[in-house]
Amino acid sequence: MTEMSEVCAALGQYCASTAMVFAMHQIQVACIVRHGLGSQMFRDYCAELVERQMLLASATSEVGVGGDTRSSICAVEVADGIFTLNKDATTVSYGANADDLLVTCRRSVDAARSDQVVVLARRGQYRLDQTTNWDTLGMRGTCSPGYRLSSSGPAAQILPGSFADASSHTMVPYSHILWSSLWLGIATDAVTRAARFVRAEARSKPGTTPPTALRLAEVSNDLHTMRAMVRDMAREFTDAQSPNEDAEALLGMGFALKMNNLKIASSTLLVKIVHQALLLCGILGYKNDSPFSLCRHLRDAYSAPLMIGNDRIFAKNASMLLVHKDD
């Protein structure tokens, strides 16, 4: 995890969309590797994944459900060993370019909304009809329009177990840590640009500290906080995997709260940091064609608090804190 987090942060310094595609693929792979290896089909699939370097996309969000990944309207149906699954997906990043998809859905047509499973739909087994465009403020390179998905394939491609466990064990921590890592990359580059700006000012008048230096000290303080949070959570997650740790800890409320707090805090700090860096660079940050441009950072940064809306996550935390004792 710590290594993947570093990769996302590094990519995020150059292209947040690339970093997001990398992160999302890794999240999907982790779900299969950590929850599917009990099945021969998924063991073979993993070998193929590595050999053919296939790209995996995710269809969790759904029309009528939004960003609440823990409920689905669509349901998988199985007959004679063949699954059928149709989903009205609001946002599927790089859907048109992916090889295979992991799709969340209800376990059966009469299952509750929260009783979900994950289904692997392989290229050739699904059809995507584009329903919306991806003409957005930022994160354009993720190419994430909506699609109507229709798929069918061998029932063995339903990931064993329930999505509830895969979600708290894997999808949520991987998403929140890797997303936060790439957001850290955006913030790092914004501060790097601001620092370069301040240094250029300082060089032009040696002997005087430019007033912007104070602002730089301020924004670099936020960046350090953000970096510390991301690294701390990546390490905590890694430690929780070691054999002498209780794997059940990952299913606990304390851990869920920490992961949620990481997502909320890092996405909020990102917007703040880029905003501060922009104020610092002034018009040269506002211009698209200057070496200090922060336009793209700003546009990309605003996706972070919306990607699984922070208010939604706050609401979940509020509910958990009614019973969770942090002592």
């Binding site: 823990r70 409920s71 376990r107 299952a111 509750a112 909304r113 929260s114 009783d115 329930s162 509830a164 979940k316 509910s319 958990m320 009614l322 019973v323």
Partner: peptide, 18 residues
């Protein structure tokens, strides 16, 4: 959970039992 208990509802059940 398969009977439809959501994490939000489970919190309310815990609170009531407490």
């Amino acid at each position: 959970y398969q009977a439809g208990l959501t994490s939000h509802a489970s919190v309310n059940v815990m609170l009531a039992l407490e």
